[in-house]
Design a protein around this nucleic acid. Structure first.
Length: 738
DNA sequence: AGATAGCTTGTTTTT
DNA sequence: CAAGCTATCT
């Protein structure tokens, strides 16, 4: 290994780097901020730097702390590092903020009155717990919902504020000034349950590092180098945690933070762009390296994106420059359409065209501002028979049946997990209602035992009898059996038996709704996933921290996702629909966030454009259906901010204009009435003459897709559509295809 | 205890 | 418009 560093031998991972990248990798000592614009090789720099520190003998694998935000990023980094090292990168302190904190907290749990076996609650649990806590406060639950309270608590935790630290000034208006009380009660209850929420993972560990110099010193001795990805997304508590670990008396902080202030899009969940803007003050003597050579996008795309983001103030200042001397590429297209339906059609047909030209669907993406917008595109893609996938949305571990099953597993592993037990006690129905549950809670409280133990007591002294008594007895027996099997036959067999005998899986099997079979499949998949873990405990830890599951790679599909979800990804072609005032920038952000909200929206637009390697197509519709009614809309101000020389404004094509006009005459009694009122006079094209499509012809319809003509009557056709079934349509609405 | 009718309310989301 | 929640009925 050492001969790699002989003067004449540049190690492999340092070749083919530009000077800035190389500086970012080789400046190992002292604080370093790497401002990495979109597509400038950020991940490569991070992983190479990691490997460089190891291979040059500056530190051993477990002396580097490497932090990311997502499990995906952590996984990717681990894989790339091990590829450079030529061996598995095991036993590293490489992970998400939360995973690393969980690991630390398990070692020092007693300092915050937990034991190392604490459970990590999910959002469902948190809300149910808060509801219970808030109940005695007798607040108007409409005005002060538990969910809102949870938001307040989370923001406090993001800022490193424990209940004692909430001063009068910090106390929110929420819950009529009793928010701090509720927060304190919530925290106390978590300790009782030997549980913590996600925010606590950071908060508790930071608190321990803050108050226990011995523990802090231990980590100081441990970690020689710290690497942080996506620094612009850190919140205050993460910043405090990093600063504690990085700064120590008499040593330069070997902390390297990589980020891009122009891609900070998470302030609404507590991220503080200021952290990255303030880096040089926080870590005096810091070096700053700017990565500005973009190897991803064409000159035109970079020009459009740079021009847009230049409208933001308070940037650290970076200009993306084309990294490879490429041809200019296509200009960014700005396409105006009549309404949101047409927007969907145009995107779907463009996708189809590109596909015919030989472009892979896997290299195309439709990036929307809000999740619900994907639906319109789904419909059009289905109609045109184009495979797509919606990225994001409900993930595997968020599905109801998986959460239910997880609750069963949690009770199996920890009989004292009251929140999980509450979730399953009446699932499937065992005749346990609010009244019975309250009885169990009372027993649990008065005897200081867990809820499941309380049920045991109630069964013994016959407080519950009859049907629900029998059902509960069976449940308790299943759990006891399951625990016995856990040791003897292993966790998989035990879980299978539990889910079966408790009646949970049979409940879904007996369900006749269309989604039920899918749910049973998901449950089977859950059990299968457990095979990758040695124990139930290991599996539960994995699920609570790594809530993602790999999307099937499979066949190439168009990706539909939110702009937020697209960060870090890239595609040859990117469609950016809905660039209208109120939609994007979102009215709500504007109302709540003012100028800084607008700037964050602009950064989001910047992220969107820079996802594209070769083609970016921005769309805006003049009319959009919002809930029930149509509203006219103005093109987004971001469109005006794009530099003219990099965009090409595409009006409606002739064919599209004709189709629009026809659509209007057809739907004149429907939504078009509203359109006319709002959009003023316009021409209606003459009705098409007669129909020249023969019986038996194969046709294509924008909404219904492909089909065969089975009847002709003047300008009306009867068509049997492959996907949409039997319909009567206007002939001019279909195109004959071979 | 459970089902149903009526009402409200509509971003972005990781861990 | 449509999902999700609450209040009310049986």
């Amino acid at each position: 290994m050492t001969d790699l560093f002989a003067p004449d031998h540049t190690p492999d991972y340092l070749t083919r780097l530009n000077p800035e990248q190389r500086a970012a990798i080789e400046t190992t000592e002292g604080p370093l901020l790497v401002l990495a614009g979109a597509g400038t090789g950020k991940t490569r720099v991070l992983t190479s730097r990691f490997a460089h520190i190891l291979l040059s003998g500056r530190a051993k694998p477990n002396q580097i702390l490497a932090v990311t935000f997502t499990n995906k990023a952590a996984r990717e980094m681990r894989e790339r590092v091990s590829a450079i090292l030529g061996q598995p990168a095991d036993g590293l302190w490489l992970g998400t903020f939360h995973a690393l904190c969980a690991r630390m907290l398990r070692r020092h749990a007693e300092y915050v009155d937990l034991t190392s076996g604490f459970t990590i609650l999910d959002t469902d649990d948190q809300i149910r717990l808060l509801k219970q806590i808030m109940e005695p406060f007798r607040l108007d639950t409409k005005r002060w919902p538990a969910q809102g309270m949870l938001g307040v608590i989370q923001r406090w935790k993001d800022r490193g504020l424990t209940p004692e630290r909430i001063t009068g000034a910090e106390d929110s208006d929420f819950a009529q000034g009793r928010a701090q009380e509720i927060y304190a009660a919530y925290q106390a209850r978590l300790v009782q349950l030997n549980a913590c929420d996600f925010g606590d993972l950071m908060l508790h560990v930071t608190e321990i590092l803050r108050t226990r110099p011995d523990v802090l010193a231990q980590y100081h001795r441990f970690f020689r180098y710290i690497l942080v990805d996506e620094y612009q997304d850190t919140n205050t508590i993460q910043y405090l945690w990093l600063r504690l670990l990085a700064k120590r008396e008499g040593f330069a902080a070997n902390i390297c933070c990589v980020g891009d202030d122009d891609q900070s899009i998470y302030s609404w969940r507590g991220a503080e762009v200021e952290n990255i803007l303030r880096f040089e003050q926080d870590f005096p003597g810091a070096h700053v390296v700017r990565l500005e050579r973009n190897y991803r996008s064409t000159v035109q795309i970079l020009g459009a994106a740079s021009g847009l983001i230049a409208h933001n103030e308070g940037r650290l200042g970076k200009t993306l420059r084309p990294g490879r001397d490429d041809s200019d590429g296509e200009k960014v297209q700005v396409v105006g359409v009549w309404d949101s339906d047409e927007e969907g059609r145009v995107v779907a047909s463009r996708v189809a065209e590109l596909r015919l030209e030989g472009h892979s669907l896997g290299e195309m993406a439709v990036l929307v501002r809000a999740g619900f917008q994907t639906r319109a595109f789904e419909e059009q893609l289905i109609a045109q028979g184009i495979p797509y996938r919606v990225v994001g949305g409900l993930r595997f571990y968020e599905r109801a049946e998986i959460r239910d099953a997880m609750a069963y597993l949690r009770v199996l592993a920890q009989p004292a997990d009251d929140l999980a037990f509450e979730r399953i006690i009446n699932l499937p129905r065992r005749g346990v209602g609010a009244a019975a549950l309250q009885k169990f809670r009372d027993i649990a409280r008065s005897q200081s035992v867990s809820l499941s133990a309380a049920v045991g007591i109630a069964l013994e002294n016959a407080t519950v009898k009859g049907k629900s008594g029998d059902a509960l007895r069976t449940l308790m027996q299943c759990l006891a059996d399951g625990r016995a099997m856990l040791g003897r036959e292993g966790h998989i067999v035990a879980v299978e038996a539990l889910l079966e005998d408790s009646g949970y899986v049979p409940m879904w099997r007996a369900d006749t709704s269309i989604e039920a079979p899918g749910r049973v499949d998901n449950l089977r998949e859950l059990v299968r996933a457990m095979a990758d873990f040695d124990s139930l405990g290991a599996f539960l830890e994995h699920v609570s921290l790594v809530m993602d599951n790999d999307q099937d790679a499979g066949e190439a599909k168009v990706s539909l996702m939110t702009l937020h979800g697209a960060k870090g990804l890239e595609f040859d072609t990117v469609f950016l629909p809905g660039w209208e005032e109120g939609v994007f920038p979102s009215q709500r952000t504007l109302d709540e966030g003012g100028l800084s909200g607008l700037e964050e929206e602009r950064r989001l637009a910047y992220v969107g454009i820079t996802r594209a390697r070769r083609r970016a197509i921005i769309l805006h519709a003049a009319n959009r259906r919002i809930y029930a009614n149509w509203q006219s809309s103005m093109p987004s101000r971001f469109i005006d901010e794009l530099p003219d020389e990099h965009i090409e404004v595409v009006g409606q094509t002739k064919a599209e204009r004709r189709r629009t006009a026809q659509a209007e005459s057809l739907f004149a009694a429907g939504p078009m009435v509203a359109r006319r009122e709002r959009s003023g006079p316009h021409t209606v094209s003459p009705r098409p003459e007669r129909c020249d499509i023969p019986l038996g012809a194969r046709v294509f319809h924008q909404k219904f897709g492909y089909g065969m003509v089975i009847g002709v009557e003047h300008d009306r056709l009867e068509v049997n559509f492959e996907k949409a079934g039997h319909k009567r349509v206007i002939a001019s609405f279909v195109e004959q295809v071979s």
